[in-house]
């Protein structure tokens, strides 16, 4: 393990979901816990269990503020985990919930979050079947941290594997990106903009299910672009498959509010977190079928084709504009949006 490369201590950037996080996982965690399921670094682990394939995932949620337009930490904690299952092609079955609460948190807020958890799980059609609660000293816990662990059953018809990806495959996104990340920035008052924007936190399984029902094999890979945004998940993919990924700059779906906020701070929307979208690699021939189907599902109306996989340049994500040159889209570097989950 190379300490020099990691730095002397844990920095906030190690949790940004970008380059530093990637390095921390690859150089510190993976070598120590070596096994093939872990090393695939997918959103959920898939376990073969007699006839069925189980998907298991866990995620911790730290967000400030706890409540924001369109959601709160409780809702995020449920949707975040069930979405990691959904993009692994698994229907959520059960959730374990672990709460770390800071002493002094108003009971009102605690109850509000429990209700948010209950609402979100019933909406996602999944039950919280166990859990744990710890209280830490005042000043040591940012109000509340939540860890959820979710179990799902992989739909037998779907076959997700980066190994199936070939040059010519197409990339789609389920709707406008960056809503969550910018909502949080606004809620924190970091951008002084009047914007009617909400977090996009929502369960993705209905959308995924609709694709599986029409042409399950057409979908080869899926991720939910949370921390680090679309740029980071696609960079991870391009490095893994050693192919190029080209995004068509003009077709990336963005709300005006998100565009404006990014403009003010000079941010790339491709680096901004989503909590209710997926990015998928699909077969070219079935692209329009899939999009047509997705757009029929409530919440899938905004699904669009945003790019494609090419043989070259290997390991690089490019954004091209119609009459401009191409720019390299890197993983999120540093930590311009600290502690967004």
């Amino acid at each position: 393990m190379n300490i020099e490369e990691l730095g002397k201590q844990i920095e906030l950037a190690h949790g940004s979901g970008g380059k530093s996080t990637h390095r921390l996982i690859e150089t510190a965690i993976l070598p120590a816990l070596k096994n093939s399921t872990l090393e695939s670094l997918s959103d959920a682990a898939v376990i073969n269990c007699e006839e069925k394939r189980l998907a298991l995932t866990t995620d911790s949620f730290v967000v400030h503020p706890l409540l924001f337009p369109g959601g709160s930490i409780g809702k995020l904690a449920i949707n975040g985990s069930v979405n990691d299952l959904a993009v692994s092609g698994a229907e959520p079955q059960a959730i374990l919930l672990s709460l770390i609460v800071e002493a002094g948190l108003p009971m009102e807020i605690f109850l509000r979050e429990i209700k948010a958890i209950a609402d979100a799980s019933s909406k996602a059609a999944v039950q919280v079947i166990g859990g744990d609660t710890k209280v830490v000293e005042h000043g040591k816990g940012d109000g509340m941290y939540i860890t959820t662990t979710a179990l799902g059953i992989v739909d037998p018809r779907i076959n997700l594997s980066p190994r199936r990806i070939k040059p010519g495959d197409q990339i789609i996104v389920s709707g406008p990106i960056g809503d969550h990340g910018i909502t949080i920035l606004l809620a924190r008052g970091e951008i002084d903009l009047e914007a009617n924007l909400q977090s996009d936190s929502r369960p993705l399984w209905p959308l995924v299910k609709s694709m599986i029902s029409v042409c399950p094999t057409a979908v080869k890979w899926m991720r939910d672009p949370t921390r680090g945004g679309v740029a980071t998940v696609l960079n991870e993919l391009s490095r893994e498959i050693k192919m190029g990924i080209v995004l068509f700059e003009e077709s990336i779906p963005l709300r005006e509010e998100v565009r404006g906020a990014c403009e003010i701070l000079g941010l790339d929307p491709l680096h901004i977190a989503c909590e209710g979208q997926f990015v998928a690699v699909v077969e070219k021939d079935l692209l329009s079928e899939l999009l047509k189907e997705l757009r029929k599902v409530p919440g899938g109306e905004g699904a669009v084709h945003i790019g494609e996989v090419r043989e070259k340049p290997p390991g690089v994500v490019l954004a091209v504009s119609t009459y401009g040159g191409s720019r390299r889209v890197d993983m999120l570097i540093g930590d311009p949006l600290p502690r967004i989950c």
């Binding site: 008052g189 970091e190 951008i191 002084d192 903009l193 009047e194 404006g260 003010i264 701070l265």
Partner: peptide, 10 residues
């Protein structure tokens, strides 16, 4: 603009 101004001052 007003949003730019307040954001940058912050």
């Amino acid at each position: 603009s007003s949003p730019d101004w307040h954001t940058y001052l912050k």
